[in-house]
Nucleic acid binder design. Structure first.
Length: 570
RNA sequence: GCCGAUGUAGCUCAGCUGGUAGAGCAACUCAUUCGUAAUGAGUAGGUCACCGGUUCGACUCCGGUCAUCGGCUCCA
């Protein structure tokens, strides 16, 4: 940690103490939860009768300013832990008592400013006047100690900076981030919608969004083919038996949709693996056939709690670029290596930075601990061999195997779960998958689940924010807008459009009887990468005027010249 | 699922303490044929999320449901 971030943390931590002080002064019977500094600010959790409303925030801010003005000293005190328990008990701060009881230390520190005392490691700023720029941002509910089983407390989020200018800048950035929100851009650019009357968490792709999706699908199909994957396709509904065999009805039940057909139990697939396995099992497999790599854009449906749905990033029906690799144990490492290379290739294509996480055995798991250890070792070895930086995450694996998760960083630095590579020793066992070895005996293959994008919905949601809706030429649903100045230019404009379409460019032509300024504005708002403006001068010169989105006029060019430059840009 | 907020025209939003609704943009029609981010005029568009209650009368008050938003928990 650098000196700067340490100072910032100290400032924010001190600000949250002031906020807690203000809340306690304004409302009766406030019990304090915890109040740490976080990445972009701070929060404090409160348990109190008064239900916080947005209107309360300015009042709390005003009280905070009053407190700060007094320029109170932050004083540190050491206390015997038992003494501290007694101290907070007397104050009725039961949450602090609970925290103290969990600590092992003989001594604890408490910080005080004015009449406000809090259990706290510190450090803090020395005087309250050091706090110069802060803002309370939002109110939220949060479970005590982050557990669903505990009481829900009221949390106030805020942020603080050393100077007013830095605070302003942060708030502006927040606003900019809001403008890039894929839900907002999805509406503005007419890409997709989700409808109350059709069901929460189910996405309707409009022509432009579906085009974007299809471009990504085509790209991925080609790249999967190049790498020896074969396409398969499976039904969305299956008898429950299939998922009983796989174990999903046991471990994944709360996320599955069940239905009845002809008095028999069926499910809507929450995962594609059992389907791909069924195809693998259709015949005897020789060791010479392996590895077998089955790929599909597989749509799955999973029940997600109503409160967690979020635009395209968390939905109830989504399509994974899913593949299952069946291989011999001796091929495992090489296959994982190839998948990692594939991931790297695709992420570079989209300009994503990413972070690699090695997710290890969770509490709920199937299979033996030994097979888990073995799989975890192999993943770790591949990462080390390829000198890939990764973060281990104990307990982060799915129930059927450890995985390498790749989190994508968008332009705002937020991380999204994207590609995932999972080793599975369990399903081959459950489905009794075998291949015939060189020795003529049956052997057990190993399975790898992998998705490069993860889910198309989530990936595209992230992509919209990553580019802020300004898609590169190869992804833009509409690449070129042709804008004739007046009706007499329409014929020539149509010819240009046809010529571009013949070369597979996605073109729109605006023949409305509007002024050119209006047409340009329209195309700019739609974030179409190129505009071709056609008037008398262009017709005469047999050229078009090129205008680039966000950049402006590039001057006259012939159609040949622009298609050549487009091809280069792709 | 939990805590809180919100739900008015395709979109963005007005509508004080109860008397069934407006604006801008978009759409449509007409005029205009224009040189690099909004031409003008007109027309049409709403069971005020849904269900129930209170009331002579509900967009407005009360209850429930659904959905969205900010979080928590959980996850691709």
């Amino acid at each position: 940690m650098t000196k700067g971030t340490q100072d910032l943390e100290m400032l924010r931590h001190s600000t949250t103490h002031i906020m807690a002080d203000a809340v306690m002064q304004l409302f009766p019977n406030v019990k304090l939860g915890i109040g740490p500094a976080i990445e972009n600010g701070f929060y404090y959790d409160f348990d109190m009768e008064h239900v916080l409303k947005p209107e309360d925030l300015p009042k709390i801010e005003a009280k905070m300013k009053e407190i700060i003005k007094k320029n109170l000293k932050f004083e540190k005190r050491e206390m015997d832990r038992k003494e501290a328990i007694q101290f907070f008990k007397e104050k009725g701060q039961t949450y602090k008592v609970e925290l103290l009881k969990k600590l092992d230390d003989a001594n604890v520190t408490i910080y005080q400013h004015g009449d406000f005392v809090d259990l706290c490691k510190g450090p803090h700023v020395n005087f309250s006047k050091k706090i110069k720029a802060f803002k309370l941002l939002s109110i939220a509910g949060a479970y005590w100690l982050g557990s669903e089983k505990n009481k829900m407390l009221q949390r106030i989020y805020g942020t603080a900076f050393p100077t007013k200018e830095e605070l302003e800048k942060y708030l502006n950035n927040l606003e900019e981030a809001h403008k890039r929100d894929h839900r907002r851009l999805g509406k503005e650019l007419d890409l997709f919608s989700i409808h109350e009357e059709c069901g929460a968490g189910f996405v309707y792709w409009h022509p432009k969004g579906a085009m974007l999706r299809s471009i990504i699908e085509e790209f991925l199909k080609k790249e999967n083919l190049k790498r020896g994957y074969e396409f398969v396709a499976i039904p969305h509904i299956a008898k429950i038996d299939l998922f009983q065999t796989s174990g999903h009805t046991g471990y994944y039940k709360e996320n599955m949709y069940f239905m009845e057909i002809d008095k028999q139990d069926y499910v809507i697939k929450p995962m594609n693996c059992p389907g791909h396995i069924t195809i693998f099992k259709r015949k005897l497999i020789s060791y010479r056939d392996l590895p077998i790599r089955y790929f599909e854009f597989g749509t799955v449906y999973r029940y997600e709690k109503s409160g967690v749905l979020h635009g395209l990033l968390r939905v109830r029906g989504f399509t994974q670029d899913d593949a299952h690799i069946f291989c011999r144990p001796d091929q495992l490492m090489d296959e994982i290596h190839k998948v990692i290379e594939f991931v790297d290739f695709v992420m570079k294509k989209f300009g994503y930075e990413y972070k690699v996480i090695l997710a290890l055995r969770p509490e709920k798991f199937v299979g033996s601990p030994e097979s888990w250890d073995h799989a975890e070792e192999i993943l770790e070895e591949v990462l080390k061999k390829n000198k890939i930086d990764y973060e281990p995450e104990p307990g982060g694996g799915v129930f059927y195997g450890p995985k390498i998760d790749i989190k994508l960083k968008d332009a705002l630095g937020r991380l999204w779960q994207g590609p995932t590579i999972q080793v599975d020793f369990n399903l081959p066992e459950r489905f009794d998958l075998t291949y015939t070895g060189e020795d003529g005996k049956k052997h057990r293959p190993v399975m790898i689940h992998r998705a490069i994008l993860g889910s198309l919905e989530r990936f595209i949601g992230g992509l919209i924010e990553h580019y802020g809706g300004n898609f590169p030429l190869w992804l833009a649903p509409t690449q070129v807008a042709i804008l004739p100045l007046a009706d007499r230019h329409n014929e020539y404009a149509n010819n240009v459009a046809e010529e571009l379409q013949k070369q597979d460019f996605r073109v729109t032509i605006d023949t409305r009887s509007e002024k050119i300024g209006n047409k340009i504005r329209n195309a700019e708002v739609e974030k179409i990468p190129y505009m071709l403006i056609i008037g008398d001068k262009e017709m005469e010169a047999k050229k078009v005027s090129v205008r680039k989105h966000g950049k402006g006029d590039l001057g006259q060019k012939s159609v040949k010249e622009i298609t050549a430059s487009f091809v280069k840009e792709l």
